[in-house]
Design a protein around this nucleic acid. Structure first.
Length: 567
RNA sequence: CGGGGCGUAGCGCAGUAAGGUAGCGCACCUGGUUCGGGACCAGGGGGUCGGCGGUUCGAGCCCGCCCGCCCCGACCA
């Protein structure tokens, strides 16, 4: 393809509204353009990259017996009512009505549709297991779209669903998927690592997230570099730091603590360690109020909290709700719920604090010499693990870092088959609900993640497997017919050899063309100019290493055969 | 949803304090010189100043309403 006729709108400056590296570079290098918040158009280069990623995904899905389908994006409300998710999904779902007033949504995911398809068209255990996948556009009206194509409201996703007669059979496919995902991420050049994930209230036991470490990620993980322990922040565990605050012989005392809005301010005001302070929080847990206590030097991890309470939704009470109970945020204590039917649970770390500081249920006042033993408290692990906390396995300090979630696999059990009446007949003629698994990869997010991981100050550096083109021929003296003709000749030879090549025939100064080639990130650049033509030594530059090779014209095709295919 | 910021040519921005003919750089078009790491000179095209309404002789600028975009927060009591 001639670059002079392609839509590759590169920019000299970073777009003003971009924050993350991948967002800046994909816009600047002419890959994507914003249409609306979290909604992007993929220009020709991006679409080529996406198709490469998709093809790798297809190969790996086909290899484990996946059947590719393309489900409808527009889905009727009734389908979602069957599982109750029309209401559960809430505002995150894009909803619309047809001309007759019937409700539809733009699919944020496809469990309902695939389950309905299998229910209505498969009926015997003899046909199982079955694995389906699709690569399709998903719509989610995210609370806050971010980082360009990393979290969009419209995005490309590979989603797969499997149907089984037993958990053991599901486990086989689950393991196949795990390996396929590892292959996919390795092949696209990502150092993704699988983490046992929180599967949520409905996910069953097996669930793994595939995460790639990146500054602009939205997931947090901890890892022990000594023994290899690793976990997402939602499930991570680390022993709490022991403190020793034995009961005081002094009675509990209310003290005036003006202007202490944070734990740090209060600790400083009273001249105590933050670990001596107990934070009291009121949570709404599936409609019931629960008091949660945690030490001042720790934070509550709501996912862990939900899990220990076996709840599907936990949230803090709003200031208004607290107000209705006569309480004020920041100054709550267990005394406030003493005679009420409100359960008190505390993080394990609180048990050491027998002479502590706690809110006095009154603005600007706290109690000192507070002893937790007065209360009937259940101790559990609901702490957020921090950077530097001790590894639960070997005790070495844990590293905490951000990562991008590029894939997620999990066991669905009968969460969808049961309510939807999706059953098959087993050997004994018994109706059984399908055991299901589901598996997702964010295709457009993978593209952005590769850029986050593979770039330099000059632009993107695509791994060969996903590069939009392998080679860019930079013709410098385009107005000289003989030189341009040689550029075209090399272009034809490479293209005929199956090497994806782009011909930069634009009549621009050399510097501009070199900068663009680097920015868009093509793995190899061949320079055709007065200099290289007259010397007969064509300069080939490796975008990643910067290595320069001098190659005669006839050797160019063999050179790339070796470099690209190892032939 | 709360807080903050922004919206002026394709992109990046100034102009808003103090109302008076809409600017700069890049990009684009023409001509010339140049040309192996984002050239220079000369000329040129391109604007509902986010929208609607108001104040005013006169609004990019003041007032009101609305829309869009970005950042932070929406768990730390």
């Amino acid at each position: 393809m001639r670059m002079s006729r392609m839509l590759i709108p590169t920019l000299r400056e970073d777009p003003a509204d971009a924050e993350s590296i991948s967002h800046k570079l994909l816009v600047r290098a002419g890959y994507i353009r914003k249409i609306s918040a979290g909604v992007y158009a993929y220009l020709p280069l991006a679409w080529r990259v996406l198709k490469k990623i998709e093809d790798i995904v297809r190969e790996e899905m086909d290899a484990i017996g996946g059947q590719e389908v393309l489900m409808s994006i527009l889905m009727p409300k009734e389908m979602w009512d069957e599982t109750g998710r029309w209401d559960l999904y809430g505002d995150e779902m894009f909803k619309t009505k047809d001309r007759k007033g019937r409700w539809f949504c733009l699919g944020p995911t496809h469990e309902e549709q695939i389950t309905a398809l299998v229910r209505d068209n498969v009926s015997s255990y003899k046909q199982l297991p079955m694995i389906f996948y699709q690569i399709n556009t998903k719509f989610r009206d995210e609370l806050r779209p971010r980082f360009g194509v990393i979290r969009g409201r419209e995005f490309i996703m590979k989603d797969a669903y499997s149907f089984h007669t037993s958990v053991d059979d599901l486990k086989k496919t689950y393991d196949d998927m795990y390996r396929a995902y590892s292959n996919i991420f390795r092949r696209v050049g990502l150092d993704a690592e699988a983490f046992e994930a929180d599967s949520g209230a409905i996910g069953g036991k097996m669930s793994h997230e595939f995460l790639v470490p990146a500054e602009y990620g939205e997931s947090e993980v901890v890892k022990c570099e000594k023994c290899g322990y690793k976990a997402t922040i939602e499930v991570a565990h680390a022993p709490y730091k022991k403190v020793n605050y034995p009961p005081s012989d002094k009675p509990i005392e209310k003290v005036y603590t003006p202007g202490t809005h944070t734990i740090e301010q209060l600790a400083e005001f009273l001249g105590v360690e933050p670990s001596r302070i107990i934070k009291s929080m009121l949570y709404m847990v599936d409609g019931k109020v629960v008091m949660v206590l945690i030490r001042g030097d720790y934070e509550v991890n709501e996912t862990k909290l939900a899990k220990v309470l076996d709840a599907s939704e936990v949230r803090l009470l709003t200031p208004d709700e607290l107000d209705d109970m006569g309480l004020v945020k920041g100054y709550i204590s267990p005394y406030a719920v003493k005679d009420k039917d409100i359960k008190i649970i505390a993080d394990e770390s609180v048990q050491d604090v027998k002479d502590g500081v706690i809110g006095a249920d009154e603005t600007d006042y706290h109690y000192i010499h507070f002893n937790i033993d007065e209360f009937d408290v259940e101790y559990v692990d609901i702490r957020q693990v921090n950077d530097g906390d001790a590894c639960p396995v070997c005790g070495a300090p844990l590293k905490r870092y951000t990562a991008i979630e590029v894939g997620h696999i999990f066991n669905l059990g009968t969460r969808y088959s049961e309510p939807m009446g999706a059953t098959y007949l087993d050997e004994n003629g018994q109706r059984k609900p399908y055991i299901m698994g589901c598996y997702g990869i964010g295709i457009s997010r993978v593209m952005a993640t590769i850029v986050e991981r593979s770039h330099d100050e000059n632009g993107i550096i695509w791994p060969i497997a996903v590069a939009p083109y392998h080679v860019i021929i930079t013709v410098l003296d385009v107005k000289k017919d003989d030189i341009m003709a040689i550029g075209e000749e090399i272009y034809e030879a490479l293209t005929d050899a199956g090497i994806e090549t782009i011909l930069d025939d634009r009549d621009l100064r050399p510097g501009v063309k070199f900068k663009d080639a680097d920015l868009i990130g093509i793995p190899f650049r061949v320079v055709v100019s007065k200099k290289t033509v007259s010397s007969g030594e064509y300069e080939i530059k490796d975008r990643k290493t910067g290595a320069i090779f001098k190659v005669s014209k006839d050797e160019i095709v063999p050179f790339f055969r070796r470099k690209l295919y190892g032939q």
